[in-house]
Design a binder for these strands. Structure first.
Length: 467
DNA sequence: TTTGCCTGCCC
DNA sequence: ATTCTGC
DNA sequence: GCAGAATGGGCAGGCAAA
């Protein structure tokens, strides 16, 4: 498929708000693709080159792309920047500046290959090389293709297409209805790779999808928590719940596969190199293979103090890890296990999975079990929430004790209660309007994006800004 | 060598 | 992460 | 309630300009 054909279909998608229509158009695209194109197309329509867990970054953001567009179409950079401010969309900006003439655009796979070449460039002079390849690509594209190429590169497609829409489209393309969606979705949640799902569906059909199992070393999509405003709402909605602290750290999915350990972030990026102390601790656990879910935070067990998020996040680095690991060692508070010794545990009830976590981590002083208490009383839950807040934690997470691990889902099986939304601790305060920020994009059309407010400090006789 | 813009990713 | 919008 | 887009604060690191 030519890139221009894909771009024309992306344009059709942009022109509709109907999800059904989006699914139909995308299904058409899949049906018109060859088997080899399924993966690159799947990534490109999501504004990516590879699945989340692959460390592929194009490294061209808005600023650099404005330069590239200006060079490609022979206009001054100022003018491209001005037009971009006016349109609010660099894709549209490129489309306006591009000559309308038809061109024989490269194949989709070729565009993917050249974007990958941009992503691979590094070291001195790499910025220029990225720009050169990109402007070369623009020179081969018609204006509509240029618009979508820019959006792909920025990762902002603005089409109304997310993972669920792609899954529906794959079902439509093969079955003519949504009947395959549950199987596709489950396979996606196990593998976190939409391109692989598309390819497998074509090559091996439903049995192929079923054969994509949870594997240690391959991240699954983490389960997420919904939010409720107060403890009463939680008890009313869930009844009896398991309650755990909500740590203000980094979500970690810890994989152990024999002697290999890997750690993934909430968005499935690898964090293995950042936390050697967690890797050592996971290696020492008494299981051949494991997938654990938890929150990593720099924590001092002697003083029982959790360090603020900004210090924990400073551990998210490549350099100087050993020194920082000595000064602010990480712990992980583990609350779930999804896989052990070759068995998928996601279908066990939470209560049972938590027992396994406790058993697995009994000996570890680095991988700690997130303590669990059970209640069906709003008063007890309130006390637990306030207790945890007073310890410097972010709040609590309440869980249905009989729920399975639903990878990728955000639903009321897990509910977070946070300090600023607890209802009991918030109150109104008097503030003085000190100024405003213009803001960006849509909000700026209003004239102001955000307000700067202050409270009166009577000691200093001045207004102190708050946030 | 230092500084600062830019990007990507965490929440 | 939160907030808003359309369905 | 779901799905998707658009927004914010703050960190590290890569790179090029100073």
């Amino acid at each position: 498929m030519k890139f221009s054909e894909l771009a024309a279909n992306l344009d059709r998608m942009e022109g509709t708000n109907s999800r059904n229509e989006l699914v139909r158009i995308l299904a058409d695209v899949y049906q018109a693709s060859s088997a080899e194109e399924l993966q690159p197309i799947t990534y490109l329509i999501q504004g990516r080159l590879a699945p989340f867990f692959e460390p592929v970054e194009i490294g061209l953001g808005e600023r650099l792309l404005i330069s590239a567009v200006a060079v490609a179409y022979g206009v001054p950079k100022d003018e491209a920047a001005r037009l971009n401010r006016q349109t609010g969309d660099l894709g549209i900006t490129a489309q306006r500046l591009a000559p309308a003439a038809h061109r024989d655009t490269p194949a989709v796979a070729e565009v993917h290959r050249r974007l990958s070449e941009i992503a691979a460039a590094g070291g001195a002079g790499s910025q220029q090389k990225k720009l050169d390849v990109f402007t070369g690509l623009l020179a081969d594209l018609d204006s509509v293709s240029a618009k979508h190429l820019v959006r792909i590169t920025l990762g902002k497609m603005r089409l109304g297409i997310g993972d669920p829409t792609v899954l529906d489209a794959l079902s439509f393309a093969t079955k003519g209805d949504r009947s395959m969606r549950p199987i596709l979705e489950a396979a996606y949640n196990r593998t976190s790779d939409l391109g692989l799902i598309a390819r497998t569906l074509w090559d091996a059909g439903e049995p192929g999808l079923e054969a994509l199992k949870v594997r240690a070393g391959h991240p699954l999509r983490p389960q997420l928590a919904e939010r409720l405003p107060n403890p009463e709402a939680v008890i009313k909605k869930l009844g009896i719940v398991g309650v755990q602290p909500k740590y203000d750290g980094l979500r970690v999915q810890i994989h152990k596969d024999a002697d290999r350990v890997s750690i993934f972030s909430r968005n499935l990026e690898s964090m293995t190199e950042m936390f050697p102390e967690l890797v050592v601790a996971a290696s020492a656990l008494g299981a051949q293979s494991l997938i654990l879910d938890g929150e990593a935070i720099a924590y001092n067990p002697e003083s029982e103090e959790y360090v603020p998020f900004q210090e924990t996040t400073a551990r998210r680095r490549k350099e100087g890890i050993q020194e920082l690991a000595g000064r602010t060692p990480m712990r992980a508070f583990v609350f779930d296990v999804m896989f052990r010794d070759g068995s998928d545990l996601t279908q066990l009830p939470y209560e049972r999975r938590f027992e396994i976590v406790e058993h697995l981590l009994a000996e570890s002083d680095t991988l700690l079990t997130a303590p669990l208490m059970t209640t069906d009383s709003a008063e007890v839950l309130t006390r637990e929430l306030l207790d945890n807040i007073s310890k410097g934690l972010e709040g609590v997470v309440a869980k249905r004790l009989d729920s399975t691990y639903q990878a990728g889902a955000r639903n009321f099986n897990w509910v977070k209660l946070k300090r600023n939304t607890s209802g009991q601790l918030t109150d109104t305060i008097d503030v003085v309007l000190l100024g405003y920020y213009r803001g960006k994009g849509k909000r700026a059309e209003f004239g102001a994006g955000a307000m700067l407010a202050g409270v009166y400090d009577s000691d200093q006789d001045e207004f102190v800004t708050i946030s």
